[in-house]
Amino acid sequence: MSLLSVENLRVTFPTDHGPADVVRGLSFTLGRERLGIVGESGSGKSMTGRAIMGLVPAPGKVTADQLMFNGKDLRGLSEDERRDLRGTAMSMVLQDPKFSLNPVIRIGEQIEEAMAVHGTLGRRERRERALEALTAVRIKDPERVARLFPHEVSGGMGQRVMIAMMVVLEPALMIADEPTSALDVSVRGQVLDILADLVSRRGMGLILISHDLNMVARWCDRILVMYRGEIVEEIASGALMDAQHPYTRGLVASLPTIDETRDRLPVLDRGKL
């Protein structure tokens, strides 16, 4: 049985000219594997992630023919039941640790909070698990870092804290929405290594959202290519050269490789899409 199965997922926002679908009938399944979603800005990648989390903002509406997670039909759950799943069974790493960590709460307390609100562990145990999670994201002196405020750590460290906070309750599904695009180029690989490593060691399913086809191809097993709210191609990472859809082919053609010399990278020709 797959971890997540989505059929005909739609996210609709009301606009001045009537309802607009920003996600238009998405269908896919996810096992305990690493799935990449790529697509240009505004193609609906984040909304897809949020729809799965149950966090599409207010006037937005989510519908689907099927939205099964771990054998549960998410569509029939109440708001409280969805909330119970978040943090424990599914979680999400956001883009920029500078904005996605609460500026006035110590890092340790923010990690412990995920456990505290789901209320199964005692105080001491929460503390221990928070320190373990920090160690798991390769932070060397977790006790010192736990006492810091977010503005006192670097971007790369902040994103590792974010990952620690999201894996601490060992969810089955992890969504990472452009987890490295706000980071310094030099630490991106390291952060993704940590994330991918945790995901595979704990047997979680991962959805990695990005603009960057190269990155997704390197860290994921399978790739969904989105364009204007739809999946235009689903392809194994190793088979990118066999892509059928002109949009994907355009993306692949635009990828720079190390041993080539080109004056200009080709530009996507929208007229042909």
Partner: peptide, 26 residues
């Protein structure tokens, strides 16, 4: 409207605490 509010929701923090802990504290 800040991103860390989304983070708190992702963790499953109830709305009452989102208001008084995450938004009010700052």
């Amino acid at each position: 409207g800040q991103e860390f509010i989304t983070t708190a929701r992702v963790k499953g923090v109830p709305e009452r605490l989102i208001l008084w802990r995450h938004a009010f504290r700052p």
